Amino acid sequence: MTITDTDTVSWNPEALDAILSNDERRPVLFKNDRILTIDPLIGAMVGADILFVGPLIVGVGPGIVTAAGDDNAIAVDATSTTVVPAVMGSIAPAGGRGHRSEHVAKLAPGNTTDFLVVPDEPADDVVVATLLAHPEQVRALVSAGRPVLRAGADVPGRAAAPETGIPDAENLTGSPCVGVWIDRNDFLHQELSADGRYDETQGGRPDAYQGRYWIDSDRIGYLNDLGFWAYGEFQCDELHHAGYDMKLG
């Protein structure tokens, strides 16, 4: 299936719908575009293709279309557009990482399928501003291999972003996280109460830090009464927070 960009208001709707309904793990090919990979070895390419299967990029460069056809790929004609990483980091392009595997947000085989498709004209600026300042210029935003934004509008049925603001305190009675967590050196004692409050004792000094906390899957977020935020992570039966490894006392 090859869809040509004949309607700039609704860019490649049939192809993007096919990707959204793709339950067969068919490969997807965005072809004939300019790709800013941000990869130090691959660089930027014109008239190139990007091939992905689900959340994983499997090929980048010219000439992939033949192989994609053999694999019954969903092909999107991205002529006159530029594909850039959806998340741009300044450290890697500036040389702050020593190995290619450490370069963040690059469009290279083996990386996550997160990219923006924009018209060629504003592409040089898209790395800093287009998605936020000019979402109408975004032809598509692909996250983990699935379109979440197209023609400047949300894809119907996409997951809603979390609401802003401080969530209401939860009643955590019965939660396995409630109790006093103690680090290996017995320096930090962190009490997580069922009312969503925490109280830390450090080096025998009680009430060193106090505030609210929230549990989200294997993560815990803290809002101290002084106003700063922090987080921790549950790994098996341990709570890791700010360099401390704690177990329930």
Rank of each mutant, 00 (worst) to 15 (best):
Pro27Ser: 08
Val28Thr: 00
Phe30Thr: 07
Phe30Lys: 07
Lys31Gln: 06
Asn32Ile: 01
Arg34Trp: 10
Ile35Ser: 12
Leu36Glu: 14
Thr37Glu: 11
Asp39Ala: 05
Leu41Asp: 15
Ile42Phe: 04
Ile42Arg: 12
Gly43Glu: 03
Gly43Thr: 08
Gly43Ser: 01
Ala44Leu: 02
Gly47Ile: 08
Ala48His: 02
Ala48Glu: 01
Ile50Glu: 02
Leu51Arg: 10
Val53Lys: 10
Val53Ala: 05
Gly54Met: 02
Gly54Ile: 00
Leu56Trp: 06
Ile57Asp: 05
Ile57Gly: 00
Ile57Leu: 08
Val58Lys: 04
Val58Glu: 04
Val58His: 01
Val60Asp: 12
Pro62Gly: 03
Thr66Lys: 13
Thr66Asp: 15
Ala67Asp: 14
Ala68Gly: 09
Gly69Ser: 08
Asp70Trp: 06
Asp70Ser: 15
Asp71Leu: 15
Ile74Glu: 01
Ala78His: 07
Thr79Lys: 10
Thr79Cys: 02
Ser80Lys: 13
Thr81Gln: 14
Thr82Tyr: 02
Thr82Leu: 04
Thr82Asn: 07
Val84Arg: 13
Val84Gln: 15
Val84Ile: 15
Ala86Val: 01
Val87Thr: 13
Met88Cys: 12
Met88Gln: 13
Gly89Asn: 12
Ile91Cys: 15
Ile91Ser: 14
Pro93His: 08
Gly95Thr: 04
Gly96Lys: 11
Gly98Tyr: 06
Gly98Met: 12
Arg100Met: 07
Arg100Asp: 00
Arg100His: 00
Glu102Gln: 15
His103Thr: 11
His103Glu: 12
His103Val: 15
Val104Thr: 12
Ala105Gly: 14
Ala105Pro: 01
Ala108Glu: 03
Pro109Val: 12
Pro109Gly: 09
Gly110Phe: 05
Asn111Ile: 00
Thr112Met: 11
Thr113Lys: 04
Thr113Asn: 07
Phe115Met: 04
Phe115Lys: 01
Val117Tyr: 10
Val118Asp: 05
Pro119Tyr: 07
Pro119Thr: 11
Pro119Ser: 13
Asp120Phe: 06
Asp120Tyr: 07
Glu121Ile: 11
Asp124Ile: 08
Asp124Ala: 14
Asp125Lys: 11
Asp125Gly: 15
Val126Asn: 09
Val127Lys: 10
Val127Phe: 10
Val128Ser: 14
Val128Leu: 10
Ala129Glu: 11
Ala129Val: 14
Thr130Ala: 06
Thr130Cys: 09
Leu131Trp: 08
Leu132His: 05
Ala133Gly: 09
Pro135Lys: 11
Glu136Thr: 12
Gln137Cys: 07
Val138Asp: 02
Val138His: 03
Arg139Asp: 03
Arg139Asn: 13
Ala140Phe: 08
Leu141Asn: 10
Ser143Leu: 11
Ser143Tyr: 02
Ala144Ser: 15
Ala144Phe: 07
Val148Glu: 06
Val148Trp: 03
Val148Leu: 06
Leu149Glu: 07
Arg150Met: 11
Arg150Gly: 00
Arg150Asp: 04
Ala151Lys: 04
Ala151Arg: 10
Gly152Val: 06
Gly152Gln: 04
Ala153Arg: 14
